[in-house]
Design a protein around this nucleic acid. Structure first.
Lengths: 189, 189
DNA sequence: CGATTTTATTGACATTTGTCAACATCCTTC
DNA sequence: GAAGGATGTTGACAAATGTCAATAAAATCG
């Protein structure tokens, strides 16, 4: 059950089996159905998620009910409604599992205890943050400098597996364009 | 010379005068002219900057010479071409001081030494990262869910002083819209 | 202070993207 | 495997935004 998480840690830091076990014991497992909602907008996000299998989607819903995807979290990655989780304030975003998934959950309190449990955690977490932040900078740049078509081509180049795997509706609102526009981009070229 | 930096640290962590002094000694001061370029695209960003006075702009230039502003760094804040600095790889972005400025520079090597010099640094840096990352998430969301007009109104609400202070050309390319569109938004309402 | 350059505004028009609607297709779920 | 719902495609049109050009206004620098 904790294999993917263990691999993830072992790949990034020096860690004993004991530490690994006590680290993993903080996580609770959860099986989710397709489209199951794990966090509703307006409530405080109490968990950090690690995706064992499946895929999470962090998304926004506007007053007219239109959705935009903030992040996608495929297996082997951590994810949460970051602003809400870190600041422990109500979330703008929703979280759902867009596929039947197997998720590990870590509470906020346990998350804040990790540096004490696992000496290497602080550094690992920081490096993760740096990379996530860099990824978000790249995304901002793609949004302010590129056309819808260019952004789609970039995603296709960097994450072809996501495009194959997810409904194009979700790809569209991740790119910040309408479903119809994406459909036309695909057929045009 | 180090007053703003000292205030910044003292506000966020417990720190002795001695630590403060040895911390500050790592920074070199630099006076820049209006529009002076501190980093050219294509070269590796070797410094973290702290703005004492003035304002830095981190921006992109496309093949046609068009510019987009990735970040603005007003006084009292840290800034750098983050992906390039952290990964020590060639930067997409340029950095310039858009006003005559007083900047403190920290080299990459010294930056990596800070955790050893100043015990509280690691945590302060991590908290900073979290906040910058959250800000970038909010910006992504504004870009995928809001119209140009809404984004402008949001910026006006959150950073009115930036709008007053900077040429609207730069505000426009920070928002990812053309100068003409911004001009029309302002006159319309 | 005045000359020169930069920045801002406005109009006309092109392009991109969104919206709505109709229909087709796929996919779940019983 | 059939029914119903979700998703994808396409067309016609609307709205938002970009582009180019002309001009005005403002800021910089000697």
């Amino acid at each position: 059950m904790y294999q993917a998480l263990k691999n993830y840690l072992a790949k990034h830091i020096e860690i004993t089996d004991e530490e690994l076990t006590s680290f993993c014991s903080k996580f609770k497992s959860k099986i989710t159905k397709r489209n199951e909602v794990l966090l509703k907008g307006g409530s405080i996000c109490r968990h950090m998620f690690f995706v064992n299998k499946g895929c999470l989607r962090v998304y926004l819903v506007d007053k007219e009910g239109r959705e935009s995807t903030r992040f996608l979290v495929p297996e082997g990655r951590f994810g949460t409604a970051f602003p809400s989780f870190i600041l422990q304030e109500p979330s703008q975003a929703y979280i759902q599992s867009i596929e039947p998934s197997e998720i590990l959950l870590l509470t906020y309190l346990d998350f804040r205890e990790l540096p004490n449990i696992l000496p290497g955690w602080e550094k690992l977490y920081r490096i993760n943050l740096e990379h996530d932040y860099i990824a978000s900078i790249k995304r901002i740049e793609s949004l302010i400098t590129m056309s819808a078509k260019e952004r789609y081509e970039l995603l296709m180049k960097n994450n072809p597996e996501l495009i194959q795997r997810l409904p194009s509706k979700i790809i569209a609102d991740y790119l910040g364009i309408s479903q119809e526009t994406l459909s036309r981009l695909k057929s045009k070229k």
